[in-house]
Design a protein around this nucleic acid. Structure first.
Lengths: 343, 343
DNA sequence: ATGAAAGCGCTAACAG
DNA sequence: CTGTTAGCGCTTTCAT
């Protein structure tokens, strides 16, 4: 059953007594190839088990029809829906995808960037890792005019094409909701404020407090690394605070869930003693008890938009420089972890 | 800052007044290139910003140094640890990775297979999608002697290289544990028994009952698609059963969590009324209440083993035909959802 | 230790 | 509508 060696367009040309160029054109769907020859070609291709050689093709065309995607992690609802959105658009447009993930490490992110650059992707879609501080590793792409679109975790220098949600607004909504539930002292559990998403959510949190005339207390800001331990630590710190906070706004659902568990172990009632709001609308949100109020935003749309922008640019339909920032809708989903007020 | 065009080995050869062949050899670390020339080459490469052209190289060598990974889904702890294991080994061995996921669709799996075949991966590591029934789409790889290693979800025809856990044993352990907690009527919530993993777990479940002298009741077998709805349905069916089961063995943690939530909403106490055991040791397991007893198995090891096998084969060190089946260790983790017996 | 030359498989320009 | 030709950038004999 083993096939001896690779079939090339020369083989099929020879068999058909036509030139390789014609075969190539037939396969590429060029205009100006008779229906008959085209059919013959397709048939013979099938018959001989020909598969086109990407490398020869890319070598010739200097295009890979591949776009690279760099994400910080794979195991979240959000990221997988973004990927689904990207896939949908790129597949339709005839592009392949290479997915690389950095495990939240700037070093690995840089390595991935190098790798994708080597692989000569036609374009790049990226969300930054947790501890990425500079964008030097993207410079090679820009130097070669390989378009790059960032989503979610982006640099805030306003100089690149980005697809994001309005994190400040979301932070505001979350906090405002807690305030509406008569929380007076709201802690904010988050991560490095160097990352745009966390900085913006924090800003929204502070703005909401400010608008309500409440003072901001620095002690209520708990910065960690979003690990399980970070959630436990945050909960423990909250327990020690005097007076104890009566609301928590967590920057993701996992950490919110860990906090809630830890607090409950210590006898805190949620939402009566402390109301909790998370972020991301991950699956855990409605498996834990009480179910978690959170911010939802459509990963799939973000993916589609990012991909569409990139591809339009590649096809010369649009220019990335023009559409600098796309903001995707987002919403507050109210569940039991935060509702204390009788209707 | 834009570089005009790609630097090739010809450019660096010209600059150094040597031949392109020498440059190629210098870069490849060939023996029989003087240290001096080699250094000159490396320096110039650096200076001129040369990057090697994968396509030309692959075209010439007919090797891609890339291995393909096909998984059914990305958003689970298990899969991401497998990927981490694979990555570790392949990176060390100088191979690149292309990750494709089928979203549990056989159709998409076949499309991915075609794509990876087109891309001419040197080898393949795969876990089957939920509804894959035949392995025809892997045939092209075998025809071309591209080695394939399967892990976790595999075909049980004993004719390929597979890396798995002993699912029957795990099913046995889980059920035996429930029995030891004085469960008398244990439901099994699982998925299509055509998939090896579920069939084996089911077998373990039945064997444990048998060994304890308990009859098997067909009504206690609940087959669904592992969606949230499937979990809810299973719980509802269990509520309706008379007599009601006092134990549930679920084939994954997510479904177990959904079941537990649904049962609790109906006033069932866990583990007092019904004890629950899951499978996979996902993160939710210790966020829900009560914490979930489950089966743990090391994805990272499975990934490493699968990758190592493949690479050894590629390097001619070993032959895949020889080591047909690798079984990785697994263990029962006892948490609160199942413990009813006083010590 | 290095060079010359051929060729991997494809596509695009040019010609007819 | 189709053929001829050249060349993408690299590696690899075969020489020297």
């Amino acid at each position: 059953m083993r096939e001896a060696k690779e079939v090339t367009i020369y083989d099929i040309a020879k068999k058909l007594n036509i030139s390789p160029a014609t075969v190539s054109r037939g396969l590429a769907g060029h205009p100006g190839i008779s229906k008959k020859t085209k059919k013959k070609i397709i048939d013979t291709v099938e018959e001989m088990g020909y598969r086109s050689n990407h490398f020869a093709r890319n070598l010739r065309q200097k295009q890979t029809h591949t776009i690279g995607v760099m994400v910080h992690e794979l195991n979240s609802n959000f990221i997988t829906s973004v990927l689904a959105g990207i896939e949908k658009v790129t597949t339709e447009a005839g592009y392949d995808l290479i997915i690389a993930h950095s495990s939240e490490s700037a070093k690995k992110e840089a390595a991935n960037a190098r790798n994708l650059f080597q692989k000569r992707v036609d374009g790049l879609i990226a969300s930054l890792s947790f501890d990425t501080t500079d964008l030097d590793h993207f410079q090679p792409f820009l130097n070669k005019d390989v378009p790059v679109v960032f989503f979610d975790r982006v640099e805030q220098d306003g100089n690149r094409t980005v697809v994001v949600i309005d994190n400040a607004k979301c932070g505001y909504m979350a906090t405002e909701h807690l305030l509406s539930q008569e929380c007076k002292r709201i802690a904010h559990v988050t991560s490095s404020l160097n990352r745009n998403v966390y900085a913006q959510r924090y800003k929204g949190y502070r703005d909401a407090l400010y608008d309500k005339g409440l003072p901001f207390d620095e002690k209520l800001l708990l910065v960690g690394d979003l690990s399980e331990q970070a959630g436990i630590d945050a909960a423990n710190q909250i327990m020690k605070m005097k007076p104890r906070p009566d609301g928590i706004f967590c920057t993701n659902d996992f950490v919110a869930a860990v906090c809630m568990r830890t607090l409950k172990e210590k006898g805190i009632r949620i939402p009566e003693d402390i109301a909790v709001v998370g972020f991301n609308n991950d699956a855990i949100g409605h498996l834990i008890e009480p179910t978690l109020t959170t911010i939802n935003y459509p990963g799939i749309d973000m993916g589609e938009i990012a991909a569409r922008n990139l591809i339009n640019h590649l096809k010369g339909i649009s220019n990335l420089q023009q559409t600098n920032t796309v903001i995707v809708r987002s919403e507050l989903i109210i569940r039991n972890s935060s509702v204390r007020k009788k209707k």
